[in-house]
Design a protein around this nucleic acid. Structure first.
Length: 427
RNA sequence: GGAAAGGUAUCGAAGUGGUUGUAACGAGCCGCACUCGAAAUGCGGUUGUCGGUAUCCCCGGCACAUGGGUUCGAAUCCCAUCCUUUCCGCCA
């Protein structure tokens, strides 16, 4: 949610920043509705003040035995006028809110305008793997090594689902446990949230109403706002934990991570080259979230980026870090860096982590605040999130980047303790 | 799913149609006093939000789970919804 006051003060600037996201904003209907709201509100409040004054004098009048019936009749008419003005003010407010709630977040000023093509690679990690033998893709490797059962996954649930089996399940679990152990070392609190969330969570995270068709709904109620959906990322849960609450300033930053599967329709995004587990309807992810003091949120962002990179480095993978252009950041986010791992068989880099700062956009939507002791005011916190990490791209990257001539795959050192000391995946 | 009780501020909790949302009382927190210092004690302060060209005070509106209703007037009465606790039922 954008700040209406900032729009009033700085309409041109915000319009320009949103244009970098490819969004053409028209604030005039919102500002007009808000002006209307204030007009009606002012009129209603004047009448209410009068009513309150009269009401307060009633007991005294009664005590003195003076007649009050005439006053009551007058007040009844006044009450009707008030109700009418209240209704008008409410209607104007709802209109402004509705228009405002579908607007995306403004990007940070240092972001380039435009889409993907303007993303900038900031840093490349590790060496591009080289193979002196014909390399296999991860689908073949996973099948030959009996790590993933694609065919039977489809049998159970249709396209976009697979089954981790034996050593494959173990590798997946080892990855998750490795991530968890690293986050625990950094002092983040481990969260296991519900996987079914209410509409308010989707709204608060800024994913609804726009993207409400891209999640799986549990059809227990006709009205979506009373229904639950399967979470598309743990962010949707973590970012709403303190909705409506006022946090202690001294408790900031709050640092969490959660493991959940992520359930997504990914409608229409299937492409032939994305075979195997690159894009599924259900994938495992460990998600990091911070609630930060507005003055410290840039620091928090760097910390999350650093953590995601460090996980990848410890796995020994070749990957790169990109700063996204304004138009490639999702609607809720003011700033996003992607970590992309190299998939040798595809010859391209695929996202394994997306680290974002929503600034106060999400906090405004779900009303998460803290008391600023310096100013004595309540302010919105900044929320940040980042994958740390999603396994569905890391797993294939490991399988492909660490494959050997004999068809085996070398297990990264940091994962071995979580796999009973095994060093190689062999057929 | 059935029954009962309940939802008031940072927390516990009182208030069950009137002049009082800082809303008794207690705790917490902040300040001051006492003290070498601390504890104890005493005094004072301590909700959020919207609006009034109003980041200092000021004036006004609103908020006692949420949404409606009754009334001149609602934390208080009525209806609906949500949630919590306890008991019972169900439980791959």
């Amino acid at each position: 949610m954008l700040d209406l006051r900032k729009i009033q003060e700085n309409k041109e600037k915000i319009t320009e920043l949103l244009a970098r996201k490819g969004y053409s904003a028209d604030f005039d209907p919102i500002l007009k509705a808000d002006e209307e709201r204030r007009k009606f509100l002012g009129e209603a409040e004047k009448l209410k003040a009068e009513r309150n004054k009269v009401s307060a004098s009633i007991p005294a009048l009664k005590k003195e035995g003076k007649p009050v019936d005439g006053i009551f009749a007058e007040m009844r008419t006044l009450g009707e006028k008030i109700a009418e003005l209240d209704e008008k003010a409410k209607a104007a407010e709802n209109k402004a809110y509705e228009l405002l709630s579908v607007m995306p977040n403004v990007p940070d000023e240092d972001l380039l305008a435009g889409e993907k093509e303007n993303n900038k690679v900031i840093k490349v990690f590790g060496k591009m793997p080289e193979f002196d033998f014909p390399l296999k893709n991860h689908v073949d490797l996973c099948t030959d090594l009996k790590l993933i059962d694609y065919a039977r996954g489809t049998k159970l649930s249709g396209g976009g689902f697979w089954i981790y089996r034996g050593q494959g399940a173990r590798l997946e679990w080892a990855l998750l446990n490795f991530f968890i152990s690293e986050h625990l070392k950094d002092g983040y609190e481990f969260i296991l949230p519900p996987h079914q969330l209410g509409y308010n969570c989707g709204f608060g995270a800024g994913q609804f109403p726009k993207f409400s068709d891209e999640v799986y709904w549990l059809d227990v109620a006709e009205d979506r706002t009373k229904n639950r959906f399967m979470l598309p990322t743990a962010e949707t849960a973590l970012v709403n934990m303190y909705a409506g609450e006022i946090l202690d300033e001294s408790s900031l930053p709050l640092k969490f991570f959660a493991y959940t599967p992520c359930y997504r329709k990914e409608a229409g995004s299937y492409r032939a080259e994305e075979r195997g587990m690159i894009r599924g309807h259900q994938f495992n992810k460990v998600e990091m979230v911070q609630y930060a003091h507005p003055e410290k949120s840039r620091e928090a962002f760097e910390e999350l980026v650093g953590k995601a990179c460090s996980l990848m480095e410890k796995l020994g993978l070749h990957f790169r870090l990109s700063k996204l252009a304004a138009g490639d950041c999702s609607a809720s986010m003011a700033r996003t860096y992607d970590i992309e791992v190299y998939i040798p068989s595809m010859g391209i880099y695929k996202e394994v982590s997306s680290v974002s700062n929503a600034n106060d956009y999400q906090a405004r939507r779900n009303n998460t605040r803290f008391k600023n002791l310096k100013t004595g005011k309540t302010e919105f916190v900044h929320t940040l999130n980042g994958s740390g990490l999603a396994t569905s791209r890391v797993f294939p990257a490991i399988i492909e980047q660490f494959q050997n001539k004999d068809g085996s795959v070398t297990i990264p050192k940091v994962l071995r303790p979580f796999m009973g000391g095994e060093t190689v995946l062999k057929p």
